[in-house]
């Protein structure tokens, strides 16, 4: 009896979690005629990929995906290049600076973005960077930096200090030991941070909305939202298709890290 109730509850959760996803997928595969039907069906009667082709053709989806790709890649690389030396220093040198930096990461979570975006917008305007991709990249770097710093210094700490000390005893210079010993061990952490920064930028909406006024240089989230503006029922199919395509990078990222999420690293983070 108790077991049956548990299964019933689990089933309820499965339905709640899955049904919007199924509906998105189903809408993406429906023909325009079927979309116009007054009695929507769960599954498409004659599944079609035409919506995907339409999505590419109609709105500047490819162009905005490319722009998102450029901005996300640039901001991920710049963020990590800026954060890595400081992360190393923070992890190896405990003290007031370290505590302040960690505190800053927490504080930056509490403050609403509106308090950051207005001053940044004014800075961008002064340097004529509003409406430019470098401007948006700059804003994304700014925004991702504190958290990337925190992530990276965690990864540096996991590299045993003894390894570096052993290298020093063997006569290796500081730089050598960092390049030859710390760097290879740190590679997975750097990749994770790069991915995190990439996904944050790829998904980001508010800053893009504020910085990019010109529709011709819109990034992917902006283009997707614009889709809904002229919303006839028939256009919902391409919209669903485009949304699915935009989700692929995040899905790949999560597939890559999901084992770590499950295996309790999260537990470690919470227990501190």
């Amino acid at each position: 009896m108790r077991r049956a109730l548990s299964y019933l509850a689990l089933l309820g959760y499965l339905v709640f979690l899955a049904f919007p996803l199924i509906w998105l997928l189903s809408t993406a595969l429906k023909t325009p005629q079927e979309m116009a039907s007054l009695d929507p069906a769960w599954l498409p009667r004659r599944p079609t990929l035409a919506n995907f082709a339409d999505a590419f053709a109609e709105q500047d989806l490819v162009g905005s995906a490319l722009r998102s790709l450029v901005v996300a890649t640039a901001s991920a690389v710049i963020t990590v290049v800026l954060a890595l030396p400081a992360a190393y220093a923070l992890a190896r040198h405990r003290g007031a600076v370290n505590r302040i930096a960690i505190g800053w990461v927490l504080v930056s979570q509490v403050f609403p973005v509106i308090l950051i975006i207005i001053p940044l917008f004014m800075v961008l305007r002064r340097f004529d960077l509003v409406n430019t991709l470098p401007g948006l990249t700059f804003v994304h770097v700014t925004f991702t930096l504190p958290f990337a710093l925190w992530m990276l210094q965690g990864y540096v700490r996991a590299v045993p200090r003894e390894l570096e000390e052993a290298a020093a005893v063997d006569g290796a210079a500081k730089a050598t030991s960092i390049v030859k010993i710390v760097a290879p061990l740190l590679a997975p952490g750097v990749v994770a941070t790069l991915l995190f920064a990439f996904i944050s930028s790829w998904n980001e909406f508010l800053f893009a909305l504020v910085v990019l006024k010109d529709p011709d240089i819109a990034t992917l989230p902006l283009t997707l939202v614009k889709f809904t503006g002229a919303e006839g029922v028939v256009r919902l199919g391409p919209l669903a298709a485009a949304s699915l395509l935009a989700t692929i990078p995040s899905l790949v990222f999560f597939a890559a890290i999901q084992r770590r999420l499950k295996s309790g690293l999260m537990a470690g983070a919470v227990k501190g």
Partner: peptide
């Protein structure tokens, strides 16, 4: 976006 920042990151390893 603030929410996302915390949400997407895999937890860094525990420090010894």
């Amino acid at each position: 976006m603030t929410a996302a920042a915390g949400a997407y990151a895999p937890a860094p390893p525990r420090r010894p």
